[in-house]
Amino acid sequence: MRTAFIRELIAQAREHPDIFLVVGDLGYSVVEPFAQEFPDRFLNAGVAEQNMTGVAAGLASEGYHVFTYSIANFPTLRCLEQIRNDICYHGVPVTVVSVGAGLSYGNLGYSHHAVQDLGILRTFGELTIHSPADPGEARESVRWLTRNPGPSYLRLGKAGEPDLYPAQPLGPRPNVVHPGTADVAIAATGSVLKCALEAAAFLRCDGLDPAVLSCPWLQPLGTEFAAVFQAYRRVLTVEEHVASGGLGSLMKELLPRSVAVESLTIPLPVTRMVGSQSFLRREAGLDGPAIAAALKRLAT
C-alpha cells in the first residue's frame, strides 16, 4: 500500500507543483524516488514529529499541500496538539500519512500498534480521514486528497497487500465490494477487508451470502453513507482498531436504529500481545473464520 501511495504521490506531484513531502526520518526504500525527483519539495525533518508537523503546517500556510509521512503512532499521537492547533485550527492543507495501520507492525510490539488513532483523530471534525483497504483504494485516496487539499489523515497499511477489488473513485460512502443476496452485510475498513472477503466466501459455501462493503472514507460522513446501509437489516463491522471511536462506533452514531450494528474490534489484551498481523488478527477474532462465525450468529 505504501508503494502505491508513493507512486501516486509522485504522479500527482508532477501535475501539482505545490505538493511537498515531509518525512520523520522514516520511509527507507519508499520515499527516495520522490526526494530524487522533487528535491525542492522534500524534507527529512529528522526524528522529531512535533517539529515535523509544525513545519508542515508552516509550509502549508505558504501555499504548499504538505504530506507528512511516518509510521505507527509517531505522526499522529506523538504530535497530536500540532495536528489540532497548527493544522486543524488554522485550516491548512496538511495530509498526515501513517504507515502501519492497526496491527501491521504486530511483531514490533505495543509502541507500533496503531489501534487508537481513528478514535482520537475523528474528534477533530476538520480532518478528512481515509483508511484504504488495498493499493487501489490508496491510489484513489491520494488522487482525491491532491485534488482537494485540506487537513486530512491517511491511514495506510504496510507493504504487499493484494488488490481486493477493482478500484473506484473515493467518496463519502462505502464501496460495495460484493453485493450479496442476504439482508446482512460485513463492513470493513483497512486491509482487514481481506479477512471479511474470506469470511463471506466461507459463508457462501454454507448458503449465506452477505454483502461486503469497504469503508475507506471515514470522515466527514453524512446521509449518503447511512443510506447505503439502510438496505441491510444487520451489519457486522470489522476493523483493526479498539472499540472506542472506530468504524463500529461511527456506524452506531450514524445509522438509524432499524439497522442493527455489531462490531469486531481489537480487545485490549491483544494490544499487549506480539506477533505477526495474521496471528494477532486470529487472537483478536478478526480472521476469516472468526468473522464468519460472528456473522452467522448475527444473521440468525
Binding site: 515535523m52 513545519v55 509550509l59 505558504e62 504548499y64 485550527y89
Partner: peptide, 22 residues
C-alpha cells in the same frame, strides 16, 4: 498564527522560512 500552547510558533515559522527559501 494563533498560539497559547507553547512551543508551536518556532516549528511553524521554520516551515514558513523554508517555504521562502525553496
Amino acid at each position: 498564527f494563533s498560539t497559547g500552547s507553547l512551543g508551536h510558533a518556532l516549528p511553524f515559522g521554520l516551515g514558513m522560512a523554508l517555504a521562502a527559501r525553496r
